[in-house]
Write a protein that binds this DNA or RNA. Structure first.
Lengths: 246, 246
DNA sequence: CGATAGTTTGATATCCTTCAAAACCTGTGG
DNA sequence: CCACAGGTTTTGAAGGATATCAAACTATCG
């Protein structure tokens, strides 16, 4: 939390990296000034689009995804409150992937001019935004490790641990419990598995009292064992300043 | 190629994004000023290190990798001449992965002060460096797609296509032929497969006259079919300005 | 020329997919 | 409150892709 605390999810998130002063906090909160509700399923950016704005998620979940010619879909990231879709986005001529909402959400859009102005005048905020970009990239690398080196059960455990830590960071957890709006099909598209296999693995994990899922809530009943199964090391989230022992 | 052409691999690479003037080219070439030879296997950065310099690869190959507690290794990126290891690296308190040389190489190190000075005074170069970062991230996403949605044969084909295009971009290809220093074990660590299976798949691809490998050179004997097998779409490399039809 | 790293091959086991059907939710209209 | 529709989850049987283990073979390099 910043010295001047805030319930703005982006302030909470970036505070893991930088101590902000009052003005910094105002600058970040300002990003959320103009926000809109959008329904689940809404596509914020489509592959091929020329990016016009930076999106900032205030409430809800979104994902980055790519659809292959054969129709298969790969989800490459989840966005949760406080996350932005790439602040340097304007450098690209066209998007190489899409971003879609997974739940009804509240989204702010930041114009190119506003983003440039902030990056010119507010070095601490800029540093924090660039740090967030590095963390996104590190997360992507860890997902690659997840796919390459872990089996279905370990992958699942790893994702649960990551999401818990990230939601914790923005204050959206309860005690070992988080909102979990993903369908098993979306989980399958995330992990490179079939929904059938996801179902089997989840059933097994429930039987072993590792987790329970009901009503779109996920309860990590044995966080320690989940971390161990996943060989989960949160270092890649680069949160050490705040939460030395998650 | 830039208006003021250069055989510096970084100039060649970044020219895919930006037209540089003479001074820009000098700034980029200046990064290579102080360079050193290092032997294959040398670890440039180890997981846990506090990053001190930005590394720029001038000759040779390197990889980003992570080693899990159980000893398994995942390779998460290949660096080829012209590639840098993350210009924002100083924002991190410790590295979440290592970078090692895969061949004898020539490497330049750029100090924090030098990098900061360039980013302050040379906007075109800075934009190009940030673009390169975005491309690295996009490549990581494509690798995730590769792992999640493609089988061993398709993954392999995809990697070959990507490496050919990237080496083409810095002028290090021959006609459908590139240097290819990777062992099958390294390929396995890249694709999340066993060396045994990599061997079988490669043997099959050779039998089908898709590729041939001898003396650490890779020949793409049927690039069209490889692209098709991999569903290779180079859009994620964001090279459209230069090579509209690779 | 021998030592060592790298590659190939075979037999068998495991994980995950595929296909198909049934069961279970959840929200909606009557 | 019920019935139904659509999406989601579960279950079973069988097949395919990749792993594992072990051994032989082949480059490469001092």
């Amino acid at each position: 939390m910043s010295l001047f605390s805030s319930d703005n999810p982006m302030v909470r998130k970036l505070s893991a990296f930088e101590d902000f002063d009052e003005q910094d906090v105002r600058v970040i909160e300002d990003f959320s000034e103009v926000s809109r509700h959008h329904p689940s399923g809404k596509i914020l950016i489509e592959e091929g689009d020329r990016p016009e704005n930076v999106f900032l998620l205030l409430e809800g979940w979104a994902c980055r995804y790519k659809i292959l010619p054969d129709g298969n879909r790969q989800i490459m990231a989840f966005l949760i409150p406080g996350d932005v879709c790439d602040i340097q986005i304007f450098l690209l001529k066209s998007m190489d992937h899409g971003i879609a909402l997974l739940t009804d959400s509240v989204v702010a859009e930041i114009s190119k001019t506003k983003m440039n102005a902030v990056m010119k005048d507010h070095s601490r905020v800029t540093r924090a935004l660039l740090w967030a970009t590095l963390v996104d990239e590190a997360t992507l690398r860890e997902w690659l490790v997840n796919m390459g080196q872990r089996n279905a059960r370990e992958r699942m455990a790893h994702l649960f641990c990551e999401l818990y830590v990230r939601l914790f960071q923005v204050g959206l957890n309860r005690e070992h419990e988080i909102r979990f709006p993903l369908t098993q099909e979306q989980l399958a598209d995330t992990m490179g598995l079939t929904p059938v296999h996801v179902s089997r693995v989840l059933t097994k994990m429930r039987d072993e009292e590792l987790i329970s899922i009901k009503g779109r809530m996920l309860h990590l009943r044995d966080f320690e064992r989940l971390k161990q199964i996943a060989q989960f090391d949160p270092n890649y989230l680069h949160l050490d300043r705040r939460h030395p022992n998650l």
